[in-house]
Design a protein around this nucleic acid. Structure first.
Lengths: 197, 197, 197, 197
DNA sequence: AATGAATGAGTTTTCATTCAT
DNA sequence: AATGAATGAAAACTCATTCAT
């Protein structure tokens, strides 16, 4: 088998078992059994358990980041945000191992891994911040701390995804996008005198 | 030393080390060294590593749940929600180990632990759902799926807390409450035609 | 409680648990729980786990040895042998813990314990040897190696007792005595020409 | 080294150490030191201490059972019984660790082990019973309870073997066979009036 | 004499990693 | 490149024994 294929095969098997058993519940034996190769072969492709896990996570992060397309200023912004959100949610719910790996296992392996995770969140949050700041400049977003707000917005998306995975539910992407948009547009409180005009 | 004190001391030491090194990074040696007792003493108070960790989590969950006071219908509801939110955030940020333990380590130890965590979230989410449903009946909350919305609202609170802990920042409780309230009241999108009257 | 009573109480509790769980399956906790005393109290009466077990065994051996009465040369020898056998078997089956302790647990704790057991068997075997030699002198016992024969005779008694305890059966003392006597008197083989005159 | 060889080597080393120190006196360290392998190597071949011990015992039981050959009805029965007895005794005395393991250590490890031992004895006793019943039908064995008698006969063989191992003596197979046969044929009691004609 | 909290050496077992074939 | 036997450090847990109260 070509080296690249073997690597991909090992990566896939690793993701599979890491997703099912978690990082600490997975042993190299699990991985090589799942991949159908010998123990030593694994170490020809990855220097350590830690390293495959990072490779798996990198894949996932790349996948998630790839779901978000750059904005085209000539098209309707709101529509593009909505599309991005939809793609993001679909990506999150497309593979059931993803939420567990990203939200449950990614944190706490070691300092280096935490850094990688922080990097991932930093990228995501910067994009949101950037959008917020732009929106504020154009007057379509209320004023407020973009850092804090971006975290709140991330939570709006992440928590439903996390809860769904916690209960082995599949995420209704459309419903979630609608809900998030409703939040963004007017909050949850209706009432006699919101007076936010 | 009296058994009760010793138990508390061991629990405190365990929480300390679990908070710093995570569940899997912590060994019984770490705990007993931190507590300054012999290895066997630990097992006089807790039957297993798993068990202390659960005790630590139970403490945390109790603490977090205790921060939310029951509503008094004769007083201003919005004010009470705000107070509860403030207390909750203060609790979450009062001890730096709390977010890591609750958001980063609680998941994935074993099935039983996951159940406990699901129970904790279920309690929290039910409260939020209940409040939403009540609000919808009184016409002060927009209509929408209370289950999904409660998860979104939880994320609004949890993610900023999580991100702060990820960066070792201290949470500005007041700012976060304000931000959340702003979200609740009107969302983030301003604009020519919010038309939510 | 008087020291003697306490010692007896502890000894009884120890025999109880040793009989149920075996030497290695028994911990000091089991003993003190069964006796209803504190851990330290135990060590006021016995210097070690090893020591109580030896005391228990000594009791048992004494009991077993006490079941065999010295022979009265003025009375019928065969009848006395039969009586002793009966008493012995009754003793062996009177307490269900006895066979397990004597046959299953007594051997292999340590060298000292093995010596004690060897001493016990030596005493028993010497008595049988003595009787055999006497019998041979009087012409009522066939000629043959008394050492080997005494071991065979011991097996004739011990194995049925052991097997009964292995299957939690109660030993039928009378039937066993009859069987042993039949063996002694004529063996098992009948036939055209036993010619044992 | 080939897996089969290694397994055999570990089994041999285990049998050696178990035979010398007993089950509870043996630690995995003793075994791996005796075998000259690393600690982990042991666990590549046996899942637990309990499991090697059972494997050792299984070997022994197989060996002992293998010493008894099926009877050929066309040949002299008595001679075949004598040959089987001789082989059995030779087997029992060929390796000095065998009696200790089979008679002293096999009982009391755990319920499963006890079952295995009961099974071993059941097989042996059933064979003896079967022979007795056949003998009774042909009129060459006196009438009497075959179950009880088979246990007595087992004792006749086992106890001399056990006592010999207890004193580190080597068993004189021929003398023992003669003694047992003498027992079988006419018992020990001679005398004026056996009157078993 | 009684208590029971504390001790720590010792045990079994796991598993990431190495390396000769 | 692939194999899989071997390694050994490290972990969780037990329990006989001690000793201050």
């Amino acid at each position: 088998m070509a080296p690249d294929e073997r690597r991909i095969q090992l990566l896939a098997a690793s993701r599979e078992v890491f997703g099912q058993r978690g990082y600490h519940g997975t042993s190299i034996s699990h991985i090589v059994t799942a991949a159908g190769v010998a123990r030593g072969t694994f170490y020809n492709y990855f220097p350590s358990k830690r390293a495959v896990f990072q490779a798996v996570l990198d894949d996932i992060m790349e996948q998630v980041e790839g779901a978000v397309h750059p904005m085209d200023p000539t098209r309707d912004i709101a529509a593009q945000v909505r599309e991005n959100l939809e793609r993001l949610i679909l990506t999150l719910s497309a593979r059931e191992d993803l939420p567990r790996l990203l939200f449950g296992e990614a944190l706490g392996i070691d300092e280096e891994g935490d850094d990688a995770l922080r990097g991932f969140y930093a990228t995501a949050l910067h994009r949101i911040e950037h959008a917020l700041i732009l929106g504020q400049q154009f007057g379509v977003v209320h004023s407020g701390d973009p850092v804090l707000w971006s975290r709140c917005l991330l939570g709006l998306l992440k928590e439903p995804a996390f809860q769904a995975s916690l209960h082995n539910e599949t995420l209704d992407a459309h419903a979630l996008v609608e809900a998030i948009f409703a939040f963004l547009a007017r909050g949850v409180l209706a009432g006699p005198a919101p007076s936010n005009v």
